[in-house]
């Protein structure tokens, strides 16, 4: 397993970029969803592929997982997974501002995931003078086994993932979901050079 091996400055810098991105993203989300969005400072941790598959497999309660690929300049790319708990998917249509009969629960989850992923990563990209493009979000079948199957069959080789755990607390619609960013090894090195450049500029 390779390591991010960030020194203290690099670590602080990354955390700061992510914090600012979260702050701006939550502000945009609050406006769009027209409700107060509160989120805690996101926890960032580096996880190995193996431990992550184990975590996801042992977590029986996840109702849905949505995957969306992202790619930007300077070789920054990866795949975002949004993991939902069953009780959180009940009132999404309401939160998103759709009529419940206008769209299926699957579509609601996919729509929300796309909004959360792209909003966060767009602001993140802007912080590092980058610009992201995205593949269409896909709902990986709801059951756990399907998620681990998907991870096991990943086409690109990542052995390290950056797990950004975000807890969205929305007044009236309490729900939370985990956002996990998988970043392949090559992209990790690219992120490191971007961080170094930012640190130099200070």
């Amino acid at each position: 397993m390779s390591e991010l091996n960030l020194n203290e400055d690099q670590q602080d810098c990354l955390q700061e970029i992510i914090n600012v991105a979260m702050g701006q993203a939550s502000d945009q989300l609050a406006r769009f969803l027209d409700t107060f969005v509160y989120l805690k400072v996101p926890s960032i941790e580096q996880v190995s592929t193996l431990s992550l598959i184990e975590t996801l497999s042992s977590n029986e309660n996840s109702a849905a997982v949505v995957s969306q690929g992202f790619f930007g300049y300077e070789g920054i790319r990866g795949e975002a997974l949004l993991v939902y708990k069953p009780k959180d998917s009940d009132r999404l249509a309401d939160l998103l501002g759709y009529e419940p009969d206008e769209l299926s629960v699957e579509e609601q989850i996919i729509d929300l995931s796309s909004i959360l992923t792209t909003t966060f990563l767009n602001v993140f990209a802007k912080q590092i003078d980058n610009q992201m493009s995205y593949s269409a979000p896909r709902l990986l079948a709801g059951s756990q086994s399907a998620v681990s199957d998907h991870l096991a069959q990943q086409s690109f080789n990542w052995d390290l993932a950056l797990k950004v755990k975000i807890t969205y607390q929305v007044t009236d619609y309490s729900f939370n979901c985990d956002m996990i960013l998988f970043i392949p090894e090559s992209a990790i090195n690219n992120i490191k050079s971007v961080i170094d450049r930012i640190l130099e500029e200070f």
Partner: peptide
Amino acid sequence: FQLKSQSFCSWEQR
């Protein structure tokens, strides 16, 4: 318009 981000719609849902 508001979030200035891409959005998608798949044949699997519609």
